[in-house]
Amino acid sequence: MRVCIRNVGKTYRARGRELGALEDISLDVAENEFLTILGPSGCGKSTLLLLIGRLEPPSGGTIDFEGERHSGGPLTTMVWQKYALFPWRTVLQNVAFGREVRGMAKKPRLEHARGLIDAVGLKGFEDSYPHELSGGMQQRVALARALANDPEVLLMDEPLAALDAQTRAVMQIELLRIWDQYRKTVVYVTHSIEEAVLLGDRIVVMSARPGRIREIIPVMLPRPRTLDMIVTQEFHAIADHAWTAIKSEVIAYA
């Protein structure tokens, strides 16, 4: 499905003062697009995800989902930066959570969860608890849990930000491999330029608080993407372009 965001704004009220988080955001996310949102910390990009996920209401404007529904799942499901796994549930029980609360019978939902655990490369860890896994593995579980929910749109809030550089590089490619398999519409928030270029079909560059869309940069790199592309001229050109767009915003904020 497409996501149509029109004139969306969000202000928070804190100690009697109004704090503008987002201002006049208009944006279309195309069907099966991998859209990355790039911005300095505190620019409201995570807030935008919460609004698309309907976990918070916008202060103004509309967010609509248009087109045919493909899945039996919800419109959106979120992958959180800090994984947000349930520590008392095993990997299998975590992944099956969405279908469990939507009343699916135990056997098929566990069967389905096993398939996704396999797909994210965690076969053999079904009965482990989250605290027994590394950060990268925990984020794989969180990804499998979101995919098991079979949403129309997958929302990802800096899912790799807590990982070390090497694990992060591996996970970026893993993420693309898994995305290629399931072909979801993805809205992916990051503050890493390299990540935004490597993953996205388009990059939405946001300004510092209150967050506005500063520029939308198409990424004309072929798929499947590989880590080797990072050293190509084309990659550099796009990354430079994004850096130019975001530079003044980072300086304004820092």
């Binding site: 996920g53 976990l55 919800p74 959106t76 499901t77 979120m78 959180w80 800090k82 947000a84 349930f86 959570f97 969405g98 469990e100 609360v101 939507r102 849990r145 929910n149």
Partner: peptide, 22 residues
Amino acid sequence: DPMLLKAAEDLGANRYQVTVKV
């Protein structure tokens, strides 16, 4: 952790399920 409550809600849990399961 309030994040776990949010995550459960996002995955489709209703208020009763959030209470009992999270």
